[in-house]
Design a protein around this nucleic acid. Sequence first.
DNA 1: TAGTGGTCTAGACCACAGG
DNA 2: CTGTGGTCTAGACCACTAT
Lengths: 234, 234
Amino acid sequence: MIGRYMKSTYKDVKSDLLSKITKGEWAPGDLIPNEVELATTYGCARATVNRAMRELADDGIIERRRKAGTRVRMTPVRQARFDISVVRDEITEKGGDYRYSLVSRTVDVAPDWLRARLQLPVDAKALHLVCMHYSDGVPYEHEDRWINLTALPDAADADFSNECPTEWLLATIPFSKAEINLSAELADQKLCDYLACSVGDPVFSVERSTWWEGDAVTYVRLSYRPGYRLTTRY
Amino acid sequence: MIGRYMKSTYKDVKSDLLSKITKGEWAPGDLIPNEVELATTYGCARATVNRAMRELADDGIIERRRKAGTRVRMTPVRQARFDISVVRDEITEKGGDYRYSLVSRTVDVAPDWLRARLQLPVDAKALHLVCMHYSDGVPYEHEDRWINLTALPDAADADFSNECPTEWLLATIPFSKAEINLSAELADQKLCDYLACSVGDPVFSVERSTWWEGDAVTYVRLSYRPGYRLTTRY
DNA sequence: TAGTGGTCTAGACCACAGG
DNA sequence: CTGTGGTCTAGACCACTAT
């Protein structure tokens, strides 16, 4: 047991505080002793307690306010994290054999719904790509992507027949802002042909709009083979 | 511009490093100067640089290894965080009027699939609850929940006719481990009756298994009204 | 205004892993 | 063995905000 005057690391402090909370010693809404008190309790510097509590706050376990002190959150752990990985990695990590295929590539004036979605000017040109990703030869993910050629003219010259646009984009604009939407959709005939499923099958769908340096860069809709699940733990 | 010998906060350092990365000054795989160098560059203490870089590492932007130094990650492992909130909050935050209703409540021997899923002993008793959540009187979410009575005998005495089991559980075992699965499903006749939709509609489904102090506590399957979307940004 | 968390510092020692 | 990040300290000042 960790008691008074025992030197503690920030991890010790963090896990001890957490166990006091999980065990119900401090209930939701309760006020936790302040940093100076805890520092004496745990026999460490205030900065050490601060780091432990800051991380608990980041994790959504506690709420901190100057002067008011630190309280256990009323509604705990509100966030689940999902890794947004590249399809290739997702498949190979599961031990599958990854294959990519470009279905079509056209340059068009951005359709109205896309212009609205990405706030593009009238007549904005966009590169429209349709691709498939296979795991062990079995359809895994259908990718329907639009790239804003005004913001990313280089995309017009890129060869997407061997490289998947996601990976090209990551190499080109590695760190961007994005908005993600998860939903359940129905497979239409066209999608079924690609995913080798039946019309009316439920399809897990991910939509992602991406901005870079304030400009809308790309919109993608990923449709997964029936049975796909996104999993996480906390 | 932030230059040499200007006092910087960890946020200054973090955002300057990040912009060097997003602007391509440092490409994926590149080695970043070490903490001591950056501290002189930014005119701050090493601890300040350390915090900035630690946060960038937590965010999946850079990779740090002792002796080897810090590099920009090859594949930015972006993590999307989704708010797993209580339905009541989710609905009221959108300005809806929340209503809860208990559909059924039975105590049963845990069915085989549940025992397998939660690793329960044979003959484990479970409380089976079916509930509905409405927004402005319109079906919003269907909740099908099992609570392990061996781990949580108190649940047998709880009154779920007015309090939703999620909220009761949060108050009882606030901080627990969970496994979450997101998927797309088809609505069957029974679900349709509850959600007021049509058989064959795609339904966004969340399954969550929860553990507390090593024991499986509850399994829940949430089915959302057609059209539901889970959204996040990064 | 006073109490609390937020941050910075200058220095120290340690842990790990590359060469 | 040595360079790097990981962590801790004791003290300081600042920034909020409840009262």
